[in-house]
Design a protein around this nucleic acid. Structure first.
Ligand SMILES: [Mn+2]
Ligand SMILES: [Mn+2]
Ligand SMILES: [Zn+2]
Ligand SMILES: [Zn+2]
Lengths: 155, 155
DNA sequence: TTCATATTTGTAATGATTACATTTTTATAT
DNA sequence: ATATAAAAATGTAATCATTACAAATATGAA
């Protein structure tokens, strides 16, 4: 179990590095939340993060999770994803990349669309100063297509 | 005032046509809501539509507005825009076009980005069946840039 | 230690959206 | 035209993600 221990330690360090890099003073909670974001690339919601972390950290407050995620977002340490109209999801990967939401299972996938990379951030478009870019796709994911054979009409 | 009358009538007809085209049986409320969407290209929220329409239609229910907009969206008569994390906005223009949300004034603008048109709807990307595409940009809009000279650091 | 500041916590709002039961409208059959 | 069934709209009460706020705790310099 030595491996697990040292791996977890390295993850913590990665989390702290990301925080410091984005001018966020590390704290128990902030490290835990950033660590969760880094090790779970499934674009979790605030509630999911709270539920999972509060198991090993019973005093964690949901408010702290919300505040912390908002702090991360405004400092560029994480990105807010508003692809789902019901809740906001978060991503430690702040690079401009596209997301796909499966309407059936709800999972959010990363998409690497090379043609999108052509458009640089932080520029003006039609006179507006662009600070954030989001590319969202919705439909039925690979896995759900494989399972259910219904609705396979639209090729 | 003859002109106004006939113009309004034509708008109603346009609204009805869009409904019928999308297999939605026209009703007073549905026509009014579609008419509002067509004549107000500002991407209104359900609440805004309700507030404005209920003036001249006091019995209108907010539930009806929500139900109707959801019906429009699932029949392809309007598109839901989840660019704002606080509420959903709607657009009678169902063509694939980008949107810009101003973080200062909250207005949502259309962007006509020709390079986006290259990607056709209803195809598979990385194995996932794509049914909807959204391109969202956020920042400070033209007007707000002109007014406030603060935060002009990021050219 | 002491004091000021930053962070976290718990609880109570808020506010958009939805559920649901009731009423009204519309269409159809008699 | 009347009765009847289905569709649509209404009003109210939940739901539930997010935020506001005040109190408690931790941090860090003096
Ligand atoms: Mn991602
Ligand atoms: Mn639009
Ligand atoms: Zn799926
Ligand atoms: Zn603006």
């Amino acid at each position: 179990m030595k491996k697990d221990q040292s791996k977890r330690l390295q993850q913590q360090i990665d989390a702290i590095n990301s925080l410091v890099l984005h001018q966020i003073k590390p704290s128990m909670q902030r490290i835990a939340i950033m660590d969760y974001l880094i090790t779970h690339r499934t674009h979790p919601s605030a509630d999911e993060i709270y539920e999972k972390l509060s198991i090993g950290m019973p005093t964690l407050s949901k408010t702290t999770v919300y505040n912390t995620l908002k702090l991360f977002a405004s400092n560029g340490a994480a990105q807010m994803i508003t692809i789902d109209e019901h809740q906001v999801n978060f991503d430690a990967d702040t690079s401009t990349h596209a997301h796909f939401l499966c309407k059936q299972c709800g999972k959010i996938y990363d998409l690497s669309l090379p043609e999108l990379a052509t458009m640089p951030d932080m520029q003006k478009i039609e006179g507006h100063l662009v600070k954030e870019i989001s590319y969202f796709y919705k439909g039925i994911c690979k896995d759900c297509l494989a399972k259910g054979t219904k609705d396979s009409n639209t090729n």
